[in-house]
Amino acid sequence: MEKDKNKEKEQLTGSSSSSKSTRSKKARKAKPSKMATALGWFRELNRTARTLVTCAIALAIAGGLWLLVQGASSIFINRPGEMITTLRSSLEKIENSSSLSTLEYTYNSIVPVYSDEEQTIERYFVRYEGKVTMGINLEDVEINLSTEDPDTIIVTVPQVTIQDTTVNPGSLEYIFRDPAAMTETVNVEAYQLCEKQLEQAANQDESLKNIAAENVMNELKALTHPVSAQLTGNVKVVYEWAE
């Protein structure tokens, strides 16, 4: 009798334990975790949609990171300001010119700038590049009939001179000996000094005048050729340099 009762008990207890486990499973199924709830909709998507959503999330994360790095770089990466220039220009005057330039060369030089007249205390050095052009003034060319020979036309060409000197404003570079010399107007001062030096140097240098003179003669002869070819009789054109 007792055995039967125990069996019944066991059956009862056994059945109760199994019913507990099924209940807990049901409970688990009934109460999914928060993560599972959040991703539930994701699981329900088909494969293509899942891939698309994954890509979108990855892009969003990457964008977020990029913004973060940008923000950090704007703080930690130091960049000095830039110089932005616009030009306001108005015509002052027009002058006629008749300069025939036949030779051009560049000068490279350094101007030392001192703070004393004895030139012992260096302030700074400025390097520059300048351009010099040589030639003649075409309006100064004189054309006359020879007094000795009426069949000879004499073209008197003026001596070759320096036509222009130009310092390239973008070429200036500095080395400062005295830090106080680095003022907001240093470039203006330096530019003037470079221009002066270039002009002096160009006027002192006679070495290239011969080449420029030869070029002038060739250009004038080439220009006159169609006219001189039409000259009749013994008429001829002679070129000579002015004194």
Binding site: T86, N96, T106, G130
Partner: peptide, 28 residues
């Protein structure tokens, strides 16, 4: 320091007009 002559080249230019402009370079 003596300036160094470089890049010599023959040219053939006739300048006929020089225009003078009053310029203001406005930089920031």
């Amino acid at each position: 320091l003596k300036p160094e002559i470089e890049a010599i080249r023959s040219i053939s230019k006739l300048s006929t007009i020089q225009a003078y402009f009053h310029n203001v370079a406005q930089s920031t």
